[in-house]
Nucleic acid binder design. Structure first.
Lengths: 154, 154
DNA sequence: CTAGAATAGTTGTTATTGCAACTAATATAG
DNA sequence: CTATATTAGTTGCAATAACAACTATTCTAG
């Protein structure tokens, strides 16, 4: 007794589409705030967030961490450097590498943004009770792992 | 007894970030297949998907449906029209409007893609049992509604 | 040592996106 | 009616993205 599958695709119920639109909406709202209040793009903020967690990281490490092309990280960094939110210094042990850290100003901005970000997350999560939050969290992780294993073009 | 919030933001556990990377990954995998096998971008496929569901829709309706800028829809449509996957005809009752439908070829491609899409969704969902699927589904819907109500810049 | 592979980062090119301005057609208020 | 507002769709432009080529440095095999 197999469940027959429709020959029409209902986009609004299609998981990849739903995730994409949900994520777009959620990113879009916070992106507006980052831009309005701090003049930062989401990518720029993510770079700063990594440097807040891992001071001294290299551009390459940042790129791997946030899964963004290193060329994009490079150009975003140029803006952050120009605004003196980040400094870099050549690593003395490996002169290819440049260690990145938030400046004083960068840390100030970081400290302002973190609570805004958490507020936003909290607002989103008010639609779940704590049990549901934990569940959703776990399901997202499972789905993420699952997506990693799929190879559609073997 | 309030839960204290960290003054560092852990990007990998931050919901908007997690949704964005998950969605990117999930869209990226299927995008590659659409491109390789059918020469379609995700946007182009979404337009076709809407026209499969709603033959005769206008560009504007498509744009609203899939929440994509009408300029992007317009340009994507130009490609679909050039490939004769879609035709349009001026609406006789309202000559601003153009009714869009899949051509014979367009329908053929549509019929080929639909099962590929469902297969992919099924593969993703194998990491959930049916109860979890229903739950995840419901939680996504709730989150979506919640995101709609949030206004960070009141 | 030293030649070739690997790594960190930048830059060029092209395609895509997002916003606003624009054209053409229709709806509506006076 | 007719002037104005609204709607459907296209186009221009600036910003962003993806991908590859490139420089400079370090690692590694022989």
């Amino acid at each position: 007794m197999s469940k027959t599958r429709p020959d029409i695709l209902t986009l609004e119920r299609y998981l990849p589409y739903r995730l994409a639109t949900l994520s777009n909406r959620i990113s879009g709202i916070i992106a507006q705030t980052y831009k309005d209040k701090f003049g930062l793009s989401v990518t720029e903020w993510r770079i700063m967030a990594v440097l807040g967690e891992y001071p001294g990281a290299s551009a390459d490490e940042v790129s791997v961490k946030i899964q963004i092309e290193k060329s994009i990280v490079s150009r975003s960094l140029q803006k952050l450097l120009a605004r003196h939110l980040v400094v870099r210094e050549v690593d003395s042990a490996d002169r290819r590498r440049q260690n990145l850290t938030l400046t004083k100003t960068g840390k100030d901005v970081y400290r302002q943004i973190v609570p805004v970000s958490y507020d936003y997350e909290d607002q989103l999560l008010t639609c779940f009770n704590s049990e549901e939050q934990a569940l959703f969290d776990a399901l997202l992780d499972r789905l993420y792992d699952q997506a990693d294993t799929i190879d559609l073009n073997p």
